[in-house]
Amino acid sequence: MIRRNDAMKSMPVLLLICGMVLLAGCSPEPPHTAEGLMEEGRRALEEGDYTDAYEALTDLVNAFPQSDLASEAQYQICLMYTGVAQDDYRAKQACYIFMRDFAGRSDSVKVARVQAEMDRLFATRLEGGGLFMIILSWTMILALVVFCYWRIFRARANIQAPLEIDTEGD
């Protein structure tokens, strides 16, 4: 009985957490034409709603990859994240996709503009933050490895527990 109650007590918490995760992923149905999606994306961009703009423009790229508007949409996503939305992580991805998939069928001015942004985004050298993350990660893992193997080789069963386990529940 106690075990059944444990399971039942845990359920509402689990369902609440899972429900929140699922609800976070819900979004309304997008318009079904390239022009409609481009219009929706531009409007959202003007209103400063970058999440909606990204969704509309990405839907366009995914649903109509061969249309001329797809190239323009990917260009707009790249500019949005390098400019007004200021998100280098997404900018790298968006500009990379533009160069990979659309550079061949876009005008040279746009390609040059994205290339300039790429040069800035990927001007890579080891920064202080990177060095810090390397030192932090490596130190944590090495400390754990040394601690564990040190304990293994000096192991003593320092906790005495009965061999026969009580099977009558908690």
Partner: peptide, 10 residues
């Protein structure tokens, strides 16, 4: 290493 490890917290 910088390419791999530079953090992009966004």
């Amino acid at each position: 290493l910088g390419f791999m490890w530079n953090p992009d917290f966004s």
